[in-house]
Structures are given as C-alpha cells and as structure tokens.
C-alpha cells in the first residue's frame, strides 16, 4: 500500500513536470535553421528524395553507426546471457507443426525476405529503409522458426553476414573520408537524378548494408530466444 502510494506520488510529480511543458507548447509555423538546411540542400547536394533517409544515413551517419553497434551489443549480450542453456541437450519432444503452417511458410518466407530487400534498397526514394527492411527479414526468419521450432539456424552464417556488412559499412565510411567530403559522405558515387533507383550516391549501398546488419542482429536475437529450454 505504501509502495503504491509512493509510486502515485512520483507519477504526480512527473506529471507536474510535464504539464508546463505541454502548456508552453506552441506549434512552429516555419522550419528551424537546421531543418531548413536539410530541406534545402538534400536534393541538390545528396540527390536523395527521402530527407529522413538522408539525415539518418549521411548527415548523421556516425550516429547510425553507433546505433547499429548498440544493437549488435544487445544481440551479443542476449546470446551471452542465454548461452549456457543451448549447450544442454534437449529432450526430443517434437510436435510437428501443422500442414498449413509448414506449406505456408515455405511459400511465404522467400517472398517476405524479398519484400525486406525491396524496402531497404528503395530507402532513399520511399518511406522505409535499412531498419524496417531488416525487421521484415527477421520476421521471415521468425516464420521459419514458428513452422519448425526444432530448426537450428546457422549462427555462423548469421554472424558472418553481420560482421561482413559491418566491416563494409565502416570501409565505405572511410572511402568517403578519402574520396569525398568526410566520413560516410555519400558522394563517392555519382549522385545521379533525384527519384531514380541508382541515385543518391552511396546511400542505397549503405542502407542495404544496414538492412543486412539489422536483419541478422534481430534474427540472432530471435534464434537465441527460441533455442532456450522450456522450464
């Protein structure tokens, strides 16, 4: 009871902090200088149609590199925390999945993966990109896991794709340092015409690598969790 009351008091204090923030909110009528710079320069400098993608991949590319590193660390720690359970041999209590799920997953999983690839390779033109495409690929892996819970994914392959795309990401960033304006500058390749698939310099390449990296990280989290024992 005391605990509930203390929690309520804390929430009320937090609400008292939020209330003036909410009351003082006035919607902007024009873009602030940073946003204005991005809005004016993205198309002519970088050749990308999706300004959010241009910010994530190029203007703040270093942040994104740090972010996929954080995601990698959390996937690695999940694997580490659950590592011991995987060594113990499982009793063979195999219940086969239904015919519908097995056949459906065989049909759908390649299509889902293809959709993921489509989403991250068009990240500079349409909404979506590496993170969304990676999550879609991981949901294809999830479908395979649901259809056959005994399936063991090659952690070696997932780890190989993950580290290969990570290394390629950093190498493209370093190439930007030598051949263009700075780390992760996308103008090492021709920027082309806005709206074309092969445009925006290295942005599609970098976002595809991010998509592969994020997809393999999510897949490894899902595979680690599904390989735990039932207690």
């Amino acid at each position: 009871m005391v605990r509930r009351f203390a929690a309520l008091l804390l929430i009320l204090a937090l609400g008292a902090v939020f209330l003036p923030l909410f009351l003082a909110y006035h919607p902007d009528t024009s873009l602030n200088p940073t946003a204005l710079y991005y809005a004016e320069r993205t198309a002519q400098d970088l050749g990308a149609a999706n300004i959010v993608t241009a910010i994530v991949v190029t203007y703040r590319g270093l942040d994104t590199l740090g972010e996929v590193t954080v995601l990698f660390l959390s996937a690695a720690i999940v694997g580490l925390v659950l590592a011991r359970d995987r060594l113990t041999p499982r009793p063979h209590t195999r219940v086969p999945a239904g015919e519908l799920l097995t056949t459906g997953s065989r049909l759908l999983a390649p299509l889902i993966m293809l959709l993921g690839v489509y989403i991250f390779s068009n990240g500079h033109l349409t909404p979506g990109g590496g993170f969304q495409g990676g999550a879609v690929i991981a949901s294809g892996v999830l479908l395979l896991l649901l259809a056959d819970p005994e399936r063991r994914f090659g952690h070696r392959i997932i780890g190989f794709i993950e580290s290969l795309s990570g290394v390629a990401y950093v190498l493209i960033g370093l190439a930007g340092l030598y051949y263009a304006g700075g780390f992760l500058d996308n103008r090492i390749l021709p920027t082309g015409q806005v709206g074309q698939l092969f445009s925006a310099g290295a942005i599609p390449l970098i976002y595809s690598l991010i998509g592969l990296k994020v997809g393999s990280e999510f897949s490894s989290i899902l595979a680690d969790l599904s390989e735990t024992e039932e207690l």
């Binding site: 999706n50 959010v52 909404p127 979506g128 990109g129 969304q132 899902l222």
Partner: peptide, 15 residues
C-alpha cells in the same frame, strides 16, 4: 511521418 510509422509497425508492434 511514414518512415516512423513503418518502423513502429514492423519493430515496435510486431517483433
């Protein structure tokens, strides 16, 4: 914000 909507639907609510 279609980008954020896609991310939230695929990652936040799905995974």
């Amino acid at each position: 914000s279609p980008d954020v909507a896609m991310t939230e639907a695929a990652i936040g609510s799905g995974l």
